[in-house]
Design a protein around this nucleic acid. Structure first.
Length: 395
DNA sequence: TCTGGGGTCCTAGGACCC
DNA sequence: TCTGGGGTCCTAGGACCC
């Protein structure tokens, strides 16, 4: 028994159909109507990003092609995403959450974890959480669902159980009756592929997973098998980390072209826009990178990624564009291209990058000096006929 | 006439070094 | 005659999430 773990009280806050709700808060005449946010609204490739509960009632779902959604719900109101506004509202939402505790970890634009273990609560936890939910609704006009549990995993599963505007408490002792009867694919972290694999071994529910054989699980899911079994048993020791959201692993942009193309000018222009955006975002976050990756998706949806790593770090639009185009020209099969992407990885904070460069240069100098000392020593010993052919003399 | 765009983490093979 | 084993880095692909 882990005392500190048992004692924790974690919340998972999930905004209900966030983009659609923000649009409704902005324009109340949309309330109560079937509303969808979709990318590429005017083009055939649009898909539903999110939709209101009124639209869901008609069968409209996220990731559904727009034309299909319109067929199911002819009255559907469709708006393009306005990410700037959503990000702004999201920031306000997290600011509000930080008034309850500094231990707030944003997970995405519309969800996050709170550790309220050490918050001095005068009323009951349920009352306290109701207050948070009401404050978000009053101040931002946005509905949310909140899970209360002893760890992140259970809180996440709990927030998903009642939508919209739900509050769900999931205690360890509730696990056999509430969590275990659920299908294994409903578990956070178990997607379609893993669920299929588990089903083949007669692991159908979260309860089956909780009791499954360790060796079998490792064979089916690798290292993730053990982790998922632990979670199915209600164990999850990940702390709520307010800094996690500021530690970027990669920054990338991609775009599906208006039509599949082999036109080099179209391709270059797309890369230019993508690289400009990636470079701008790097500058804002004050990071540089030494690894660049491009993505090419072909007409038949086959997707390849190609990357390169260099000693020198990249940051400017021109440098990134140059490398991206180099990678594209080297690896393109010549088939029609559907999507292009550019991403930078292995990010280093700009301030750190200078330090590392200095260190690297110093090391190099030291090595050169050492070499020359050795050389002089040898020359003293054996005479001048030992001649050093440096790089510049080769070929 | 189907399937966007933003991410994270893990795996597996090959190169290379000791 | 036939050849180990550990470690790290790089690259590409895949699963998963919102």
């Amino acid at each position: 028994m882990n005392k500190s773990d048992n004692a924790k009280i974690i919340l998972h806050i999930d905004m209900n159909s966030f983009y659609a709700s923000v649009e409704m808060a902005k324009d109340p005449t949309l309330m109560g109507k079937p509303l969808a946010i979709a990318g590429n609204v005017e083009e055939r490739r649009g898909i539903i990003v999110t939709c209101s509960y009124e639209a869901r009632a008609k069968g409209v779902k996220a990731t559904m092609p727009l034309w299909q959604a319109r067929r199911l719900c002819p009255q559907l109101i469709v708006l393009p995403p306005n990410m700037k506004i959503y990000r702004n509202v999201s920031e306000k939402m997290f600011e509000l959450l930080r008034t309850y505790t500094p231990l707030v970890e944003p997970v995405s634009i519309d969800e996050g974890y709170l550790d309220i273990t050490d918050v001095d609560i005068k009323t009951s936890y349920l009352q306290f959480v109701k207050q948070i939910q009401n404050d978000i609704l009053d101040q931002l006009k946005l509905p949310s669902s909140i899970g209360i549990a002893p760890n992140k995993f259970l809180a996440k599963m709990a927030s998903d159980m009642k939508k919209p505007l739900g509050i769900t408490i999931l205690r360890k002792r509730d696990i056999p009756s509430i969590l275990w009867p659920m299908e294994v694919g409903e578990m956070h972290g178990v997607g379609k592929k893993s669920a299929e694999k588990l089903n083949k071994h007669s692991i159908l529910t979260i309860g089956d997973l909780a009791k499954a054989d360790d060796i079998l699980l490792e064979g089916v899911l690798g290292i993730n098998g053990k982790r998922m079994k632990e979670r199915a048993n209600g164990n999850d020791h990940r702390p709520v980390d307010p800094e996690a959201a500021n530690q970027w692993q990669s920054i990338g942009n991609s775009t599906t072209l208006r039509a599949d193309t082999v036109n080099m000018v179209t391709i270059q222009n797309a890369f230019k826009r993508l690289c400009a955006s990636v470079s701008l975002r790097m500058k804002r976050k004050r990071v540089v990178s030494s690894t660049i990756q491009i993505t090419i998706r072909y007409k038949n949806r086959k997707t390849v990624t190609r990357s390169l790593t260099e000693e020198k770090t990249l940051e400017s639009e021109e440098e990134i564009y140059h490398k991206a185009l180099f990678l594209f020209e080297k690896h393109w099969t010549g088939e029609p291209v559907r999507l292009l992407g550019v991403a930078v990885q292995k990010l280093i904070e700009k301030s750190e990058a200078y330090k590392q460069l200095e260190l690297f240069t110093n090391e190099k100098e030291e090595k050169v000096n050492q070499f020359h000392e050795t050389l002089s020593e040898l020359q003293r010993k054996f005479g001048e006929h030992i001649i050093y052919k440096g790089k510049g003399h080769e070929k």
